[in-house]
Design a protein around this nucleic acid. Structure first.
Lengths: 196, 196
DNA sequence: CAGTCTACCAAGCGCTTGCTTGGTTGGCAA
DNA sequence: TTGCCAACCAAGCAAGCGCTTGGTAGACTG
């Protein structure tokens, strides 16, 4: 029989493959058949692991947000210096956007409108804890006069600035991630607070 | 006969309606039938005005980019002071994103991956003149020490920051467009160069 | 006032989509 | 050894998709 070997965690494999396909082609342009073929099963078998196609997108986003929050939390504890802590967050978000998690993160950033309203609220609620870490650190930075713009607005502008890097920044190019992170922080804090 | 009355410029009406639908639902989720119904004709008749569905998206983007470039050009000539000129550009881009052009602009910003590669290049080429205006002014700002980050990188970060505002900023909320523009400029130039 | 052309309608073709259904297989527990 | 169940396959259904075709009403032209 040319039966596909049973895998330990087909579901996880599906989620990761879906993240890549959704990022490359977009959610609507990716068919369930494409996804199934990419992991080596038939299209109908996908629905043994997920209730619907949208359920797959939701799974991509929720697992991604969990990773994002975990890593950002760790970064926020890396230093006691506010300026360094801010740099660590920026650097971490850029790593999330351009490292091994990039597919899922890009999908979470730019394809949440493909979710139904109910699932959108779920995802938004999950993102809250991630954003809270940011707002805490930006609040500290504002209190210590490191930044001079409103933390809420600053975070939202920063979200866009960082997220948009996936459309132009290439980690293997002239500018490495550290340099980019430094540039972003310089934008927030001004040249006076650059320590290099 | 319940024939639909002949309109002066059906094509333009289609483009504007398409911009709104594409922005609200996304390009792939909008069907030609939906668009046709919205302007009061049958789906097949749409193809009298456009070669293909993608051709409609292209038309939305090209007409939008022309408006964008015209308005930004005008803004760049508004003042001789570099700081004021920079503020004028920011204010104009935010107006483009949140004013009457918002649908088309949002589509141009966030749905260009729905175009085929050839059309993507066309759009990118058209955007170049728009970006040139930005880079000129940011270059001047950098030369006169108004900003301290690299103009190219700054523009790209700014593109993301401004574009992302469509996901959170509401012009009828507490913060008006002037205040938001001022906040964005403050992010670029630092608090020292705020003149208000 | 015949000829032409633009802008549309009515109908539907071929294809892809997400998803369902019924049956099969191999591994595991009792 | 038997029974069970998760994980798959094979087949296909109903709906929706972009787009085409053939024909026609009405305005404009010479």
């Amino acid at each position: 029989m040319n039966r596909t070997p049973r895998l330990e965690n087909r579901r996880e494999h599906l989620i990761q493959t879906a993240a890549q396909l959704f990022n490359d082609l977009g959610y609507e342009r990716t068919s369930v058949r494409q996804l199934a073929e990419a992991v080596g099963i038939l299209s109908g078998s996908v629905f043994h692991h997920f209730d619907s196609k949208e359920d797959i997108l939701l799974a991509v986003m929720t697992t991604t947000i969990e990773t994002m929050t975990t890593r950002l939390q760790a970064a926020s504890k890396a230093s006691n210096d506010v300026s360094e802590r801010l740099l660590a967050l920026i650097r971490t978000e850029l790593e999330l956007l351009h490292g091994d998690t990039r597919h899922g993160v890009a999908v979470t950033f730019f394809q949440w409108h493909s979710l139904g309203h109910t699932n959108q609220r779920h995802v938004l609620a999950m993102r809250a804890s991630y954003e809270k870490i940011w707002l805490d650190v930006l609040g500290q930075a504002h209190a210590s006069q490191l930044i001079h713009t409103d933390p809420f607005i600053t975070r939202r502008l920063l979200t866009g600035a960082n997220g948009w890097t996936i459309y132009w920044y290439r980690p293997d190019g002239r500018l490495d991630l550290d340099a980019l992170a430094a540039e972003v922080r310089a934008l927030l804090t001004g040249p006076a607070n650059q320590n290099r």
